[in-house]
Design a binder for these strands. Sequence first.
DNA 1: TAGATTGTTAATCGATTAACAATC
DNA 2: TAGATTGTTAATCGATTAACAATC
Lengths: 210, 210
Amino acid sequence: MANKDDISMAVIKRLPRYYRFLGELKKNGVVRISSRELSERMGLTASQIRQDFSRYGGLGHQGYGYNVEKLHHEMGEFLGLQNRHAAILVGGGNLGRAVANHIYSQAGGFDLIGIFDRKQSLTGQMIRDIPVRHIDGLDEFCREQRPMVAILCVPEDAARDLVEQLIGLGVKAFWNFSSYDISLDYPEVPVENVHIGDSLMTLCYKISQE
Amino acid sequence: MANKDDISMAVIKRLPRYYRFLGELKKNGVVRISSRELSERMGLTASQIRQDFSRYGGLGHQGYGYNVEKLHHEMGEFLGLQNRHAAILVGGGNLGRAVANHIYSQAGGFDLIGIFDRKQSLTGQMIRDIPVRHIDGLDEFCREQRPMVAILCVPEDAARDLVEQLIGLGVKAFWNFSSYDISLDYPEVPVENVHIGDSLMTLCYKISQE
DNA sequence: TAGATTGTTAATCGATTAACAATC
DNA sequence: TAGATTGTTAATCGATTAACAATC
């Protein structure tokens, strides 16, 4: 397999979508698929699909195409979905709850081990099978449980302070729903941003263009 | 001003971030800024910033830089934030609530005029100042109120049927939080996707790379 | 074997960066 | 005027598409 370091973000960003489509095909009992047919279903070029897949070594067979189950499985491996990373969630509001539920229904990758909020009224409430703890207990919890990932569903100012605190506590990566730009201060730390506000502005632009 | 149709998505996707940073500078009383200084604050090249801004006509002044307030305002105009689009939200769960609150706190673009859910237990509840209605009333509501945009915070299968129904009811654009790929079936309809599941997989990949 | 389809190389296209003349 | 900085053109870099030999 090619060294993953060579693979550009442009390709990586397409992998989850491939993974979803292949999962769907697998569920529908499709055994094999050609790059051409997959391209039609996904709205990509067959060329791009072959380029993307070929980076991961011999996934296909000439004259046959790709085995759906194998491809789906390998794609999950490339994404690292077989790993289990201990994660904590900070911010138990609506967004935090939605995200917590998502992690549960999503196949792989993360185990949510703690939820924190600064609102006293939330502490003790259960989200799925996890109790919401008060943010004051964050330090102690992290020192004992050593979460690897933190999910930030808090406002920008809170996120800024939390990132500093959490990095000090050994957190290695962030799933960031705030508008605080973590990478500017910590360029080496893996961060995945979900900027809902930016998405809304982009929609506004697209509509204005009609 | 250049015809907006010429401007690529790569540029458009950066506009909300510019808009946010400029709003912050404005709030901090910064009057003027050069492309070089903005580039350092945002982690971009000065060249890219000048390229991006120059597409919109003479926003800067040689030897001076850019006026922060003017640039912020113009950026908002390009994004169409001065418009008001009537929007409905389908799906009153945690994600729907989070999104509804977002629309309220966000400066511009959308007026949320209705919220729908198929759960009887939710109907009648208030989210902000909007009552949750039962999904059975969607047709009648849309025929009377003519929403332009629909926000989908429902599972994929529900989203599929809803899009068909809503397009029939005159909805022109979608903010889509489901994994249903609207553009495959309706390539002409403006859609902005927020794929939380894909984002989580991408994070998983980034962590595995460390 | 003949037909299908990959993996890969080459060509094209688009986006980013560098350079600099224009000018405030 | 001298210094700073834009807007724009040219150069570079990267990503996508096309073509096709390899081969199942």
